[in-house]
Design a binder for these strands. Structure first.
Lengths: 135, 135
DNA sequence: GATCGGTTTGACAACGGTTCTCAACTACCG
DNA sequence: CGGTAGTTGAGAACCGTTGTCAAACCGATC
């Protein structure tokens, strides 16, 4: 068991299912719900259980390889992302997404939070609007 | 049914139930889930159906008299609010809330958006953390 | 290959928040 | 009062999500 170095690493296996989810994620660049991703996989001929899709997405989000956020209905939606912390500019008509970074915002949220004595800070910041193409 | 014509106003009645919800909202200043508000009303002796609480909260949010946002689980949480645009610093354990304003953030989001040609901008920004009391 | 132990999977049940349904009720107007 | 349209509540329905657990699978080892 010590074969894989100074582990405690759960040894994630590249199973057919996980590859299918990864492939599906690579196939679009806007945010999709878990069920949409599940449908997409089925439509590509693969068959992966819904629970597995959820588990895999959660694991990927944990690992920082996908972004998860919630739409206005509170549903979780996902997309693959670059590995730096960033926010999104989302078109409320067509769903087109732009990743944006804002060091200033990060600094501001941390400052505000510690000013009020809050710890273990996280934050959500999404910008919605109408993109040039949809106007 | 065309009696109230040019108003299209649904004629909101100040029923016992709606007053109870309003009273409950006045009784706390952090974010609470609909069910917590429902419990709170019951505990005050009033009896209002859960569905009615949901309906009333939705109506109040529509009218801009309460803020509704979603916690990290996607659950809707509510509180009465001041009428200026602001954001929230929310304790993820006890729900304590601080309203914060950030002119810098407003400016930043508008700049980013127009830089990408987006119009009709709106944004959401919430900060979650653990408040001093809950640590 | 055959074997073995832990990982992963999938069908399905369970769950929890939210919305829907619809008959009973109530506020308001005349 | 009586009529009428808005409102309510109990419970079912809904739907996204998570838990369950036996079977399948992977990879390392005999």
């Amino acid at each position: 068991m010590t074969s894989t170095e100074h582990g405690a690493r759960p040894a994630v296996r590249p199973t057919r299912q996980r590859l299918a989810v990864a492939a599906a994620l690579a196939g679009f660049d806007d945010f999709r719900s878990a069920q949409e991703i599940h449908d997409l996989i089925s439509r590509q001929g693969d068959s992966v259980g819904l629970a597995t899709v959820y588990r895999t997405l959660a694991a990927l989000a944990d690992a920082g390889e996908v972004d998860m956020l919630r739409n206005e209905d509170g549903e979780a939606i996902w997309r693959s992302c670059s590995d730096t912390h960033h926010h999104h500019l989302v078109c409320r008509t067509c769903g087109a997404t732009v990743e944006v970074e804002g060091p200033a915002v990060e600094r501001w949220t941390n400052a505000i939070a510690s000013e009020h004595g809050f710890a273990e800070i996280s934050h959500t910041l999404e910008i919605f609007g109408t993109c040039p193409a949809c106007r």
